[in-house]
């Protein structure tokens, strides 16, 4: 049974770009300080770029290092596509696309 993180609201992702990336990094860093599984809701992502995905990849990897998990509550097709295009599907712990 997964223990949900004390910051119980899922991390909500919107469409981000290079401009927002540093702020996003800070947000992720905060979550790293918690414990437990991090839930991510990426339903609102229509556009995403390499910088953001790179941060997410580092985030997931660092979480794993702490024996923590990421749970994709919702994931948009756009994010899946972008992750696949960069070969980051497994790095982000995204399950294979259904269908």
């Amino acid at each position: 049974m997964t223990e949900v993180s004390s910051n119980s609201a899922p991390l909500r992702l919107g469409s981000t770009s290079l401009r927002d990336v540093t702020a996003f990094q800070a947000e992720l860093a905060e979550r790293l300080d918690d414990s437990g599984t991090v839930q991510i809701d990426a339903s609102g992502v229509e556009r995403i770029d390499t910088a953001t995905l790179q941060l997410l990849a580092a985030f997931v990897r660092d979480l794993r290092g702490d024996a923590r998990l990421v749970e994709w509550v919702e994931c948009s097709a756009a994010l899946r596509r972008a992750a696949r295009a960069l070969g980051l599907t497994s790095a982000l712990d995204l399950t294979a696309e259904p269908g």
């Binding site: 860093a29 910088a51 941060l55 985030f59 660092d62």
Partner: peptide, 14 residues
């Protein structure tokens, strides 16, 4: 790719 906090977010390490 460095640890999350050490990353220069505007740079691509991959």
């Amino acid at each position: 790719l460095p640890r999350l906090r050490e990353i220069d977010a505007e740079r691509c390490y991959l």
